[in-house]
């Protein structure tokens, strides 16, 4: 499985039905969906994951499961997205094989280098701007970090954290290949339209 040269990744939030959100985001042109629902049970995650994976196949989009390698393996997801406190990326790569997509959340050049060595396919770099979607104790990284990681590590960067239509072009201009969003899509009155607008800016 191969990542597109530029892409928008939509991540599920804690409120909306993940399958409904996926449908709307895919209709808007999102090329990647990430299922992330920290409070959900395994049975809920599994059921949602099966349906979102099917939708992603229909749309030729990539589906990754956040953190839960067990669920990704059990329902044959396209891949996983791992945080720094999740299963090590090298381990996930060994379990899933060379064709799976493995993404890793990083916040500096050192973690990015480690992710590359571990066999990651892309970096989730953030949070770039202040964000309301997650409780973040650390200050935002800012645009310059995208440039630093871009120069140091040869992996596609997916910028996350406070990304919206207003700053998308700036982020891509700094060297990110993709954008990952939660609230910019989930909180929009029309998630499909919001996705479409972000996808347009990714390619500008």
């Amino acid at each position: 499985m191969k990542l597109p040269r530029r892409f928008l990744c939509v991540i599920t939030d804690e409120h909306r039905c993940p399958v409904e959100l996926a449908r709307m985001a895919l209709d808007g042109g999102a090329a990647m969906l990430q299922l992330r629902r920290k409070q959900a049970s395994g049975s809920e995650l599994f059921a949602w994951a099966i349906r979102i994976q099917e939708l992603c196949r229909q749309h030729d989009a990539i589906f990754v499961v956040n953190d839960r390698l067990d669920i990704a393996m059990a329902m044959h997801a396209d891949g996983v997205h791992l945080g720094q406190d999740d299963i090590p990326a090298a381990t996930a790569r060994a379990m899933l094989g060379p064709d799976a997509i493995v993404g890793v959340s990083v916040s500096n050049v050192e973690e990015a280098g480690k992710a590359l060595a571990d066999g990651a396919d892309y970096l989730g770099l953030g949070h770039i701007f202040p964000t309301v979607s997650k409780d973040k104790p650390n200050p935002p990284l800012g645009i310059p970090m995208i440039e630093s990681v871009r120069k140091a590590v040869d992996l596609p960067i997916v910028a996350i954290g406070g990304i919206g239509a207003d700053n998308a072009c700036e982020v891509i201009g700094a060297g990110a290949s993709g954008l990952a969003v939660i609230s910019a899509v989930t909180s929009a009155p029309d998630p499909t339209a919001a996705t479409r607008e972000l996808v347009r800016r990714v390619w500008l």
Partner: peptide, 14 residues
């Protein structure tokens, strides 16, 4: 747990 990922798919995968 009772509400875990379905046991049959876990058995097949692991």
């Amino acid at each position: 747990p009772e509400n875990a990922c379905p046991a049959d798919s876990i058995r097949r995968t692991f």
